[in-house]
Design a protein around this nucleic acid. Structure first.
Length: 385
DNA sequence: TCTGGGGTCCTAGGACCC
DNA sequence: TCTGGGGTCCTAGGACCC
């Protein structure tokens, strides 16, 4: 007997960061607005109460777009595009700085609203979730409408929902009727609705795999589904090729995971200008110390200690290296983290200018889980007392 | 006009142990 | 003197995602 067909929803907030900003600045509705760049481009409130918004053409320097309103997307602007490039496409688009505190607040609001419908929710980033509706009595369209209404009531924001028998298909479908859409698909709809789409619509097929597939004459999911498995295996290896086959046929058994523990906590920063390892030594070591302190604070706020410390360096030519060092004990102490990170740094030849510096702590364990440990171990962990 | 910051997962080689 | 696998940990890099 085959297992019962599941009903898995993927909910994706529409242009989330930009939409949150429009709640704050409703006068910008209908205009091309992009979120990104550095913090100093906050709107200026004039003495007569009117606001001055920065435009893309006024921006100088590094930075990328994180979100754009649908009006700005119409000009060809997308996430991860350099701000300077976006400025060429739409010089008069409004530029707002990112405000993660606000987005996290609205993220909590919409997730809490959905949680009042069902607790079977998997977090999948700040603006999207998977929901397992299998055990709910109502029909699928009714549930989709109820969830969208709950999100709108709680936040004033719209979202798009895809509902299919699994996460892979639902993730594709939530994107099909954006914004404010509902897409419900069954397995039998795959040839008509999924196969015409480009392979990169599959979550897990990124730029590299897309390019490689294109070089093999495969651009749509349907073409991928018709490819010989032995042919794919030659080019992608056994594990990835069998996943490609299953994905293209809409096969995905992954459950909705309602709770996960973080695997790593990190901080990194891209400098305003590339820094020379010697001439800018003071600036660099200040940044290095700050990152260690920030990671240590993040760890203790979130209640974790870790024992693998990593540094990440990105040079002026974008070449990136990482080094890590595993301590014998877990820690959230910035001094221990800095000491280990410095050991990592000594293993990197510093010949070129630096663009980015990052610190990561992994091999995490929650301080909660350490509560029952014996006295001998506690002596090793003085920061717990 | 180059390309942010926070993550996850996978691969692969070497050390080390049984 | 030569020849084994299996399992786990550590380290480094890369693809991918939001």
């Amino acid at each position: 007997m085959s297992p019962p067909v599941r009903r898995i929803a993927h909910l994706d907030m529409d242009a989330f960061y930009a939409s949150v900003e429009l709640l704050r600045y409703p006068e910008l509705r209908g205009l091309p607005v992009v979120i990104g760049g550095r913090a100093e481009h906050k709107p200026v409130i004039k003495t007569n109460g009117s606001k001055h918004f920065y435009k893309l053409r006024e921006y100088v320097g590094r930075g990328v777009i994180t979100t754009a309103t649908y009006e700005a997307r119409a000009a060809g602007i997308f996430s991860a595009m350099g701000v300077m490039k976006a400025a060429q496409l739409a010089p008069d688009a409004i530029l707002l700085p990112v405000d993660f505190k606000a987005y996290r607040y609205y993220s909590r609001l919409f997730k809490a609203a959905v949680a009042r419908v069902t607790s079977q929710i998997e977090d999948s980033g700040i603006d999207e979730i998977y929901i397992d509706l299998s055990d709910l009595p109502d029909d699928t369209l009714t549930l989709a409408k109820r969830i969208k209404l709950a999100v709108r009531d709680a936040t004033g924001l719209s979202c798009s929902i895809g509902i299919t028998p699994n996460k892979l298909l639902s993730k594709i479908c939530s994107d099909l009727e954006k914004p404010d859409g509902i897409t419900i698909l069954e397995i039998s709809d795959i040839p008509d609705r999924i196969w015409p789409l480009s392979v990169n619509k599959i979550n897990g097929i990124g730029p590299k795999a897309t390019q490689k597939l294109a070089s093999l004459g495969i651009t749509t999911i349907g073409e991928l589904a018709k490819a010989e498995q032995s042919f794919l295996q030659i080019h992608f290896g056994r594990s990835y090729s069998s996943w490609l086959y299953e994905a293209s046929h809409g096969i995905d058994q992954r459950p909705v995971i309602t709770h996960t523990e973080p695997k790593s906590i990190s901080r990194e920063t891209t400098f305003e200008r590339d820094l020379h390892p010697n001439q800018d030594r003071l600036i660099l070591s200040k940044a290095f110390a700050t990152l260690c302190i920030q990671v240590a604070e993040d760890l203790s706020h979130k209640g974790y200690i870790g024992r693998t410390i990593s540094v990440k360096l990105r040079f002026e030519d974008f070449y990136t290296v990482t080094r890590d060092f595993t301590l014998s004990v877990h820690t959230n102490d910035s001094v221990l983290i800095r000491r280990a990170a410095r050991e990592c740094l000594r293993r990197v030849p510093l010949k070129k200018k630096l663009r980015l510096l990052g610190i990561k702590v992994s091999s995490l364990t929650s301080i909660h889980s350490m509560c029952g440990i014996g006295a001998s171990l506690q002596r090793e962990l003085p920061f717990l007392t």
